[in-house]
Design a protein around this nucleic acid. Structure first.
Length: 703
DNA sequence: CGGCAATGTGTTTTT
DNA sequence: CACATTGCCG
């Protein structure tokens, strides 16, 4: 095997196959390359069976990427290694040992939405006002307790205040209901394997023998449960290779503890520590900017990341007037890049929150530029998809009260809230599932329908079953009758769902319903529709581990990036996580970075003025090339004042007529082209062009 | 029970 | 703004 492409440290990381090793790898220092080469080396040179290798990543996207790269190195053998996220690894263990833990093999997985719905139902049962006891908040508390491995019984011991007592009771009921439904949540996928291993050392031993070689990517993002799990599996042979970078720790919100990476040497005696400090990815301009930003974090180990790639182009910084202008600028630049021959897949737009994607999507659609979008108001969050999934889940596991509740009256079949709550009461009293509790009435018709679907599922493939369900339940007919654009889209989505199921079947041969449900239960995006030759849109969290030649980071404003919630709490920890997030974003680019923000942004329906992100101000101005006319910049404290004032005139409305000359605070002199109610179209000199503005806006005056 | 209108409420990030 | 929840009426 040819290792000539690796530098000295990378080579050492690959060749050290036995014993614990920690690779502290700066951004772009080739850590994925080290991991994939190392797996290939184990298989090809050390004769290790691919079955004995476990590689863990943090997102589905990263797992897919790693698998693809490994296939390129060793061919289809790669399929025999377990390369997945912690959660899908957990599903596998659970599937193989379900009965021992008191579940069946066809257990359901509830996602974050379902689990919030469950919390709401419990609050209703307890007669508590969800306005005071916020369901989302309570769900988060339960989830983070689980991630810290605090059980409901333990939580109760330390629940003192009135609110915490309630959380404790909800937590207890939540666990009972899940168990009764033969269902697990995302956190259980980590906790139950740990429980299994604690209670059954013989089973743990089996897995330790199976997974003799363990590799974990993004180790700085492990939470307590993941940390414990990886320690357990690797305990016997200690052939564990963890790769990470504390400057890229961005999952604090879900309990990640970057100290795990610092404790590695304590946990594994005589661990070898290797530092990768040469960056192969980015130009020095990009790297300098990233270093400028991250150096403002106090809680960090100094690191010396260097590049030999040359200076490259300056970073383009564009301060837009509003979100639309920001998108215009980005798309105009992207069109130029494409014209110059840059492949579309080498361009990415990255943002802090999903909500920002829409305006870029609109402009890309308008310009006919193909794009992929990762995550977001995902496919699996659409109503019609959740409905068909709930049917499939109930067919697969009739104890699944969560799914039953969702679809017992979808499409409408005259079963109202009262009936449902009667069924729920009965099921609680007799300690049976809601499905079992149904014996009479219209709901019995529903039960007969499900019985028929179950019967049908025995002799059908998933795709055939989906068609059968859509037909028998009347879901498809309902949308067909509706004949609106909305219902057309829903029908298209259902078609897409068929395609997803089909590609599963084609990949794995015949798939069992529970395998199918358990696998897609963990995916937030539709991997199948990822097309090449398209530009990429995603959040900073999803972009980690990826790289592109041209990267546009948008929405660099105080309140958005860094996000308001981190600022409001005034906690340094959270601000520093935002900064690491920015570091991750900046270091994705190989050739050129574009930093964008908007002065005015629509939020909750009305306009707010944002100050420039502190992260831009932390970058040495010599690295920036400003693509806008300089005007007095707004400081953070000034914006606080502006936001309190109303930007619109309250009285003395000004009348505008076509041809009027106006002056705008930002765009300067202009001429009114069109008056349409309270909206004016005004021509401004280059580079602003024609803008639509509100006639009562304070920034606009008649001259 | 279902439909509609009024009212309220909220947006980080992922598995 | 967009969506969820509540309240009222047929």
């Amino acid at each position: 095997m040819n290792l000539d492409e690796l530098n000295k440290e990378q080579k050492e990381a690959v060749l050290t196959t036995n014993g614990p090793i920690l690779v502290l790898a700066g951004a772009g220092s080739g850590k994925t390359k080290v991991l994939t080469t190392k797996i290939a080396y184990l298989i090809e040179e050390k004769g290790i069976s691919p079955f004995n290798i476990l590689a863990i990543t943090f997102t589905n996207k990263a797992a897919r990427e790693m698998k693809d790269r490994l296939v390129r190195l060793v061919g289809n053998k790669a399929d025999y290694s377990q390369i997945s996220t912690f959660h899908s690894f957990g599903v596998r263990i659970l599937r193989e040992n379900a009965e021992i833990l008191g579940y069946t093999k066809t257990f359901s997985i509830v996602d974050a939405d379902d689990s919030e719905t469950l919390v709401k139902r419990i609050l209703k049962e307890m007669d508590l006002d969800p306005k005071y006891y916020n369901p989302k908040n309570i769900r988060n508390k339960i989830s983070s307790s689980k991630n810290d491995m605090v059980s409901s019984t333990e939580y109760d011991k330390y629940a003192f205040g009135e609110f915490e007592k309630v959380v404790s009771e909800v937590y207890k009921r939540y666990e009972t209901k899940l168990k009764k439904s033969d269902a697990v949540d995302f956190d259980d996928l980590l906790l139950l394997p740990i429980k299994l291993f604690k209670e059954h050392p013989d089973i743990l031993d089996k897995y330790q023998e199976k997974y003799k070689y363990i590799l974990i990517d993004e180790y700085q993002d492990t939470n307590d449960a993941q940390y414990t799990l990886s320690k357990m599996i690797s305990y016997k042979y200690k052939n564990i290779c963890c790769v990470g970078d504390n400057d890229q720790s961005i999952y604090g919100f879900r309990g990640a503890n970057y100290k795990n990476i610092l404790n590695f040497e304590k946990d594994y005696k005589n661990a070898k520590v290797i530092k990768l400090e040469q960056n192969y990815r980015s130009t020095s301009t990009i790297l300098d900017a990233a270093n400028d930003v991250i150096s403002h974090n106090k809680e960090r180990k100094e690191k010396n990341l260097w590049s030999t790639k040359g200076t490259g182009e300056k970073i383009t910084y564009y301060k837009a007037y509003n979100g639309r202008d920001e998108a215009f600028f980005a798309i105009r630049e992207i069109k130029n890049l494409i014209k110059k021959g840059v492949p579309k897949e080498e361009i990415a737009i990255i943002y802090r929150t999903h909500a920002q994607s829409r305006i870029f999507e609109e402009e890309l659609l308008r310009e006919n530029i193909p794009y992929n979008i990762v995550g977001g108001t995902g496919f699996y969050n659409r109503k019609e998809i959740k409905d068909i999934l709930a049917y499939l889940k109930l067919i697969n596991n009739d104890k699944d009260d969560i799914s039953l509740n969702r679809i017992i009256n979808v499409p409408k079949r005259g079963i109202g809230a009262k009936t449902v709550s009667n069924i729920a009461d009965k099921s609680n009293d007799l300690n049976i599932s809601m499905y079992e509790a149904i014996t009479t009435g219209k709901e019995y018709e529903f039960k007969k329908l499900i019985e028929d679907l179950k019967e049908a599922s025995q002799s059908r493939t998933i795709t055939e079953l989906i068609d059968y369900v859509l037909d028998k339940t009347g879901i498809e007919q309902e949308y067909k009758n509706e004949k609106s654009i909305e219902s057309e889209v829903r029908l298209e989505n259902l078609d897409e769902f068929r395609t997803v199921a089909k590609s599963f079947e084609e990949r794995d041969g015949i798939v069992s319903l529970s395998d199918f449900l358990q696998e897609i239960g963990l995916s937030t995006d539709v991997a199948v529709s990822d097309n090449k030759e398209a530009i990429n849109l995603m959040t900073v969290h999803s972009v980690k581990g990826l790289e592109f030649d041209y990267v546009f980071i948008v929405g660099l404003e105080e309140g958005l990036f860094p996000h308001m919630n981190a600022l409001e709490k005034g906690s340094i920890t959270e601000l520093e996580e935002e900064r690491r997030l920015c570091y991750v974003a900046l270091t994705r680019a190989r050739e050129k970075l574009y930093l964008l923000n908007a002065k005015v942004r629509v939020k909750f329906g009305d306009e707010t003025t944002n100050a420039v992100s502190r992260f831009i101000e932390e970058i040495n101005p010599d690295l920036l090339d400003k693509a806008f006319k300089e005007e007095p910049s707004i400081t953070v404290s000034e914006v606080k004042k502006i936001n309190k004032e109303d930007v619109l005139r309250e009285e003395g409305e000004v009348e505008y007529n076509v041809g009027d000359n106006v002056f705008h605070q930002v765009f300067g002199k202009g001429k009114v082209l069109e008056v349409n109610g309270s909206i004016l179209s005004i021509a401004f000199p280059h580079p602003y062009g024609i803008k639509k503005l509100m006639k009562n806006h304070k920034s606009l005056n008649k001259i």
